[in-house]
Amino acid sequence: MEHASQDEIRKHVRTYVLVFVALLGLTVITVAVSYMHLSIVPAVIVALFIASIKGGLVASYFMHLISEKKLVYVTLLLTVVFFIALISLPLLGYHDTID
């Protein structure tokens, strides 16, 4: 049993190295895209899209979110809801006109 779990960890180690290579590749792509001088809206979309993939890889594999217990997911779901609310706060400014 002990050996089985150690084999599993060895498999994980291979995954970690692959994720590392993917993260390096995506970082190079992020910088390369910035030299294409896209206009601001597509530039933001592309940059945040690549960053989200990288963040997803770190969270899923390095932070083991791909196989975590339910309570961690519940905690994070609640966090995401509040995070979206927080990020959306500046939008309220559109309705807060001084006339």
Binding site: A47, A51, G55, F62, M63
Partner: peptide, 17 residues
């Protein structure tokens, strides 16, 4: 890893946009 994750978003936000 969280500190790494924050930087992954900070880098494009501050340096590349």
């Amino acid at each position: 890893h969280f500190v790494d994750l924050v930087w992954i978003f900070l880098f494009p936000t501050l340096y590349l946009l």
